[in-house]
Design a binder for these strands. Structure first.
Lengths: 345, 345
DNA sequence: ATGAAAGCGCTAACAT
DNA sequence: ATGTTAGCGCTTTCAT
């Protein structure tokens, strides 16, 4: 009898030992339910027995199987995060924060990145199969059909940094419109006369809200937006948009408000590379998000900081209430942003 | 009898309908195993029946419960990614790639971010509880105790961008040392005479390997490394390190090789901000990774591109073999990097 | 405080 | 090709 040791064979059974509660129970002569109770702090079990179980568990390398528990309890402890546009540093930064806070809450983070040009709906079937306790979306939108599917399964959905017209889901946003107003007022006060806006995507609420506020703030001061050009939420898009704005022969813009920071960096890059305009003397540039690079000395970008930590806490809090969005009055929760003054405006 | 409708009550049962295979089976008068087979393409079932099952499933919003399947099959379809230092853009970029490729492979990504100053070991208990099929680590290190725990449970572990001395785990790296040599040769050929290195963390293999290659390449050309300063893998660290190197009165360095791009950006920021030295005329700067920002015109950084896609494919491939690391000869897999010439050197 | 037994939803072995 | 049955590992009544 020859053991199969060829390299294509499956790993041998030896070592593939998954210690179960039953193993512990047998060794200690107790019931599996008792083992289970030892790991549930709210359970009635004698301190002595619990100690013996815990220490044997440590010795044998036992941990309760979360998958089995999930099946039993109908809650997986997993929160899905559906994220688009990882190329915008704002999202990785938010992701990091999100992960840390979920770990503190003893929740797991199942990540889905929506490919460029893809829809969040595409990944939802996979998300739902894993019986996640909640879904946080920072990508584009969800079809109402999908959000109904979630609601039907009792899975709460929160949009972060997106305002959506769907009573089945929550939204957590920065007060985008108000911050738009604030930026306008700041620029006017700094004697800027000709303002432009660089939009991300006019189909996305954040861009629309920030623009609306900006225009309102300008109007309140007797100014009118000179131009609204598209930057597609990317560095290259911002760079190109600046090219449009500052092409020779164009009327001179002396302030640019960008719908996010990464486009603002593109604008600064363009100005330094292709013009002799001085920032902030000739042109003021303001961004939105306050990503890390905004504070690098070579950018030194004046921007609106989104309170990412608060937004995430709020989102996680909503998810933990167990409510359904429709059952609470304010489906949209707004958190105040903060204007961070640096050298670019 | 009054129904509790207070706002703190749990959501009503209505709508919390989780459709199960049994529901389908009853409605169609078939066995649950038949329903199961309809969703397994390799199963013997009549096309007709399969069609009826699938379409009823669509109608009722049924999807097989992945948690239940995981429990049954002893494989969860989940791959854990343990990631540190999300502040270095290299990792979010790799993460995005990783997520997309796992989705293509119909695997889920459970993400764990190791907090600054934390150890990968801290999150491992949580990882193991979820019966993940495999673990990919891009953070510091794993204690041998932890890697043994994984091995004992038959869970393969791959380190990405880390070379570790542990026969229980795989490593997938760029050929760091060779690329260090190549950078040295390039700089020498460009008539650089006084080279410095900015290290990330001398406890981490990538820094050590890149430095070793760099010194070897210099030595082969009769040069010696002037300085090795610490940059802690951060922008600020690179900025500060440049401060050390280019403080007044120091011997003049005319080339700096940084263990990663983000530190190189800090160096460029410092040079522009605090010196009148010209890049690349007075000082050449070379990075490592080729993060997105490296190609921004204001940085235009010459760097070594890591073949992230290939590295990930390799890692996923290793995990799919089902082998244990010890059972294969080359526990360390190296993928060739590529020197990307831009304006900074 | 502890044990016994049922069941979460699914798949795989066996039977037909 | 389809039905029956057992069981994945856990938690949770219900007994005691």
């Amino acid at each position: 009898m020859v053991r199969n040791t060829s390299p294509t064979a499956n790993p041998p059974a030896i070592g593939r030992v998954r210690v179960t509660a039953k193993d512990l129970a047998v060794r200690l002569g107790v019931a599996t339910s008792t083992v289970s109770r030892a790991f549930d702090s709210g359970s009635r079990i004698s301190d002595d027995l619990r100690q013996r179980i815990i220490s044997l568990a440590d010795e044998m390398g036992y941990r309760p199987n979360a998958i089995a528990r999930s099946l039993n309890q109908q809650r997986s402890g997993i929160v899905a995060l559906v994220m688009g546009d990882m190329a915008n540093p704002f999202y990785p930064e938010a992701l990091e924060e999100f992960s840390l806070r979920l770990q503190q809450a003893h929740r797991q983070l199942l990540l889905f990145v929506v490919p460029k040009g893809g829809e969040a709906d595409d990944v939802m079937p996979q998300v739902l199969q894993y019986q996640v306790d909640a879904i946080v979306v920072t990508a584009a939108k969800l079809s109402s059909r999908t959000s109904e599917l979630c609601a039907r399964q009792g899975i709460p959905v929160v949009f972060m940094n997106r305002r959506v017209d769907d009573p089945m889901v929550w939204s957590v946003c920065c007060n985008n419109e108000s911050m738009g107003v604030m930026v306008a007022e700041y620029l006017v006060k700094k004697d800027r006369k000709v303002c432009a806006f660089i939009a991300g995507d006019m189909n996305i609420s954040t861009t629309v809200d920030r623009l609306r506020g900006f225009e309102r703030g300008l109007a309140a001061n007797g100014q009118k937006l000179l131009a609204n050009v598209q930057g597609g939420y990317t560095y290259d898009g911002g760079f190109a948009a600046a090219g449009e704005l500052f092409a020779k022969g164009k009327p001179l813009v002396d302030a640019v408000f960008c719908a996010n920071d990464i486009m603002a960096l593109g604008v600064l890059g363009y100005l330094r590379q292709n013009t002799s305009l001085d920032v902030p003397k000739d042109v003021a540039v303001v961004g939105f998000d306050d990503i890390r690079a905004a504070s690098y000395p070579e950018y030194n970008l004046t921007t609106v900081r989104q309170p990412v930590g608060e937004m995430i806490d709020l989102a996680i809090g909503l998810l933990r209430t167990g409510h359904r969005p429709g059952s609470i009055h304010a489906v949209l929760q707004e958190v105040p942003g903060q204007l961070i003054l640096r050298g670019s405006a």
